[in-house]
Design a protein around this nucleic acid. Structure first.
Length: 534
RNA sequence: GCCCCCAUCAUCUAGAGGCCCAGGAUACAGGAUUCUCAGUCCUGAUACGCGGGUUCGAAUCCCGCUGGGGGUACCA
């Protein structure tokens, strides 16, 4: 065997060019987003170029609609692309469906040079060959019968309209090796590789081939993609060699697995894992929030989709922090990372080799951190659209409404983890009549608690005259009340909270009272007392 | 079947021969604080898959095993 090896990956050339090539599936996968982020990061770290290329060789009808969520996700997270759809660039078009002339030319070139051949084998024959090798525990290699055809025979077949595919002729006496930036040296034996089909009988080209042509044409320096493509790389490296291209640097990053699983996170998996402890929370939240926003439920938007997070009011900073830490780390301590910090420190050699489990709990904690960093005005700005969408505040937000929202959010403090959490505090946005009492809590602490209604009535009378009606005054007032009555604070505080807000837990009680204002508090207490039948 | 990849706490990870009877974070448990919840602050439990080497010394290097995963398409 000749031990000719494809030249090892070239050292990084100065102008780094990376690409992400999604297919228009109608949603942006969170795992794909993580891959895209790494690709983007490497370009930004090197002050290079990040290219978005649309892999639409499937020829779907509605590419545009299927693409919208993908662009939306990139824009939401702030991952801009330097070349690609809508922004153009010198190496376009950026839709593979519009690049067929490049592919056919490359196929022609390979055929002419004897590096690819028309294969007239019928699918049935191929299946028979395959079954035979499998039975003998051998690696399947296609039988190159079409190579023995004479020119005359070939003409005859063509005249008869016999369909053919084009196969790349794998040099079976050669080994292929790459020096993967995250995996190191990986090697395959050409003798064990079947000749891959590069062009279908209908004339369209296959992914593996289109990628090679495009990566070369677009002068991609670093092919960063998920691990599942590692095996493809053998063929692609050979193809690059045959086409006379410089081999890009490959970096195969681990894929992310479904929470509590060792398998690749896929849309279908998630449906199956709907009841896993971690994901159940995510699904339940979707079912709780999305209907209020008129966005369907967890069937329409689930946690594998980037849009799920956007629509729930996660922060790009939180998602980006979480995604960055999935298979990459800065050092042994730093967990909280801004995008700028990641850009500055992102290197391929710090990418972990093992698959990373998608940890939504940890994502949550990053999100929490970044939400807490936000100044009040930004929290308000983030929450307002959710309140509007849920029709809890008017379309026109005047200064009063804004101030009211501000007070609620300030009082919520770190109870606000994602913007849509504000919807859990409806009691501050609905009319006194529309507010609902939590039945269980009401029963336990008001109707069923002997002293409660009486105490509430007493307190209500005094509440009518407390001045000023602000949190600290109310705080002092209630404590005084407790003392005078000779009761424990717990005997009145719970009843008061439930009477005025309808719920057993929430923001600080005195904040709640002062935000609601005296009139609403009194009306609500009256409602509660009436509901006791006293 | 064949080819390839991977292997540290429940999870994300640090660790590139002595700094490690393994560090951080999340989650979990207990305690403190408070009107509830959330948070915060302490405290705690939990990991180098197994077996051989190499070495004065191995989580770190080598081999084997086991386990997990990916690819094996006229899918991407």
């Amino acid at each position: 065997m000749r031990s000719m090896t494809v030249p090892a990956s070239v050292p990084a050339r100065v102008p780094v060019r990376t690409r992400f090539a999604p297919s228009p599936t109608g949603y942006m996968h969170i795992g794909g987003m993580r891959t895209a982020l790494f690709v983007w990061l490497w370009a930004r770290h090197n002050h290079g170029t990040f290219i978005l290329r649309i892999d639409d060789t499937d020829q779907q009808r509605n590419v545009e609609a299927a693409l919208a969520p993908i662009f939306r996700a990139f824009r939401w997270l702030g991952l801009n692309w330097d070349e690609g759809p809508e922004v153009g660039g010198a190496f376009g078009p950026y839709f593979q469906s519009q690049r067929t002339h490049l592919y056919t030319a490359a196929v022609e070139k390979l055929i002419v040079e004897g590096k690819a051949f028309r294969d007239y084998e019928t699918p049935e024959q191929v299946a028979v060959d395959r079954a035979a090798t499998e039975a003998s525990k051998q690696t399947y290699l296609n039988v190159r019968r079409s190579l023995d055809l004479s020119a005359a025979q070939r003409e005859e077949l063509d005249a008869a309209g016999r369909p053919f595919v084009v196969r790349f002729l794998v040099p079976r006496d050669q080994k292929v090796a790459i020096d993967d930036a995250v995996r190191g040296h990986v090697e395959w034996d050409g003798a064990l590789m079947p000749d891959p089909v590069i062009m279908r009988s209908n004339g369209s080209v296959l992914y593996n081939f289109a990628t090679v042509v495009d990566d070369a044409h677009m002068q991609i320096t670093h092919v960063i993609r998920a691990e599942e493509h590692l095996t493809n790389t053998a063929v692609q490296a050979l193809l690059h060699q045959a086409l006379g291209n410089t081999l890009p640097v490959f970096a195969h990053i681990p894929f992310i697995t479904a929470p509590g699983s060792t398998k690749k996170l896929s849309k279908r998996d998630v449906e199956k894992l709907r009841n896993s402890p971690q994901l159940k929370k995510m699904f339940d939240r979707a079912d709780e929030v999305f209907p209020q926003l008129g966005l369907g439920n967890s069937t329409t938007l689930n946690p594998v989709m980037v849009e799920y997070y956007e629509r729930l009011g996660y922060l790009p900073a939180g998602i980006l922090n979480g995604l960055s830490r999935l298979g990459w780390s800065l050092d042994d301590k730093t967990e909280i990372l801004s995008l700028d910090t990641v850009i500055e420190n992102f290197t391929l050699d710090r990418i972990v080799k093992a698959p990373a489990g998608y940890d939504t709990e940890k994502l949550q904690s990053y999100q929490q951190h970044w939400m807490n960093q936000l100044p009040l005005e930004q929290k308000v700005a983030g929450c307002v659209p959710f309140l509007q969408q849920a029709k809890l505040i008017p379309e026109e937000v005047d200064a009063d409404v804004k101030a009211h929202v501000g007070r609620v959010i300030a009082a919520m403090a770190d109870r606000l983890k994602v913007f849509s959490d504000v919807l859990d505090f409806k009691e501050f946005f609905v009319s006194d009549d529309a507010m609902t009492f939590d039945e269980k809590a009401f029963q336990q602490r008001i109707r069923g608690a002997e002293e409660a209604p009486g105490l509430l009535r007493l307190l209500r009378a005094e509440l009518a005259t407390v001045e000023p009606f602000d949190a600290s005054t109310l705080d002092a007032f209630v404590h005084r009340f407790v003392e005078t009555q000779g009761i424990k604070i717990g005997q009145i505080v719970h009843a008061l909270r439930i009477a005025t807000t309808g719920r057993a837990q929430g923001i600080g009680l005195f904040d709640a009272l002062s935000i609601l204002g005296r009139d609403h508090c009194l009306t609500r207490i009256d409602r509660a007392l009436a509901a006791c039948g006293t």
